[in-house]
């Protein structure tokens, strides 16, 4: 890490290589189990209420026999200029000094305004209280709070893992190194299509990849300045 980067707070960012991603959705399940995301069951799923902090969008292009498929994992983009933030009347969603779009469940009153203004549709609402049929609740991650009915939730960039990585570095009396913090989705990714790190550190993997000529951001034209960078297919 350069001296300059050390002084500043880390700025977390993710890179997703669409050329590697196969659409396998291992990341989706990993996120669910890591972050205590409840399943809602068939009736609720039919109403469009299932929760996936990260999802893999699938697009068909062309007609038989020239059909092409595009897979695109979408999670909260942790926008630098997040449209979800200013509209929240109670500051339940806000920007942290580490560049995360944080969500304080205890603060949220459930207007759903933020979700309406998120251009990526990555915010999920708890229409009912979550249920884990016992003993499935034993598998809940003790480091992630279970959200109650009426509050909004979304990808946190696995904040608990960020904190853990930082604590560990502190315990070992050193700086947080590239690769110390690995969110659950990145950890499990079967093709290593995802990268996570400090984009303020010019030597980090995410910084390096974000300068690739394949790098784009979703809906860049909206000026949201996402912290998730996508690498396009092709050379």
């Amino acid at each position: 890490m350069t001296e300059e980067a050390k002084e500043k707070k880390p700025q977390w960012a993710m890179v997703i290589d669409l050329d590697r991603c196969t659409g396998c959705e291992a990341c989706v399940v990993a996120c669910r189990v890591e972050n205590n995301i409840p399943t809602v069951g068939p009736e609720e799923a039919a109403k469009g209420r299932s929760i996936n902090w990260i999802r893999v969008e699938r697009y068909f292009e062309g007609e038989y026999p020239d059909v092409k498929v595009k897979f695109m994992p979408v999670l909260c983009q942790h926008c630098e200029e997040a449209p979800c933030e200013p509209v929240c009347p109670v500051y339940a969603t806000y920007r942290t000094d580490e560049g995360l779009n944080a969500q304080v469940y205890n603060r949220c009153v459930g207007t759903r305004y933020c979700a309406n203004n998120c251009p990526y549709t990555v915010r999920f609402f708890n229409f009912f209280d979550p249920v884990w049929d016992a003993p499935l609740d034993k598998a809940l991650n003790p480091e992630v709070s279970v959200r109650t009915r009426g509050v909004m939730e979304k990808c946190t960039f696995c904040i608990q893992r960020i904190r853990k990585g930082q604590e560990k570095a502190k315990d070992e009396d050193r700086e947080v190194r590239d690769g110390d913090v690995v969110p659950a989705c990145v950890q499990t990714c079967q093709t290593k299509a995802m990268y996570f790190g400090n984009i303020a550190d010019p030597e980090s993997e995410v910084s390096r990849l974000s300068k690739s000529n394949r790098a784009t951001r979703l809906l860049e034209e909206l000026g949201t300045k996402p912290r998730v960078i996508y690498l396009n297919k092709g050379d």
Partner: peptide
Amino acid sequence: GHPEEKLIPALIPDDEYVPG
């Protein structure tokens, strides 16, 4: 400025949790 940056920590969000 951005008052929320200073005020939000008054609540204890997830990121304050001390891991076991």
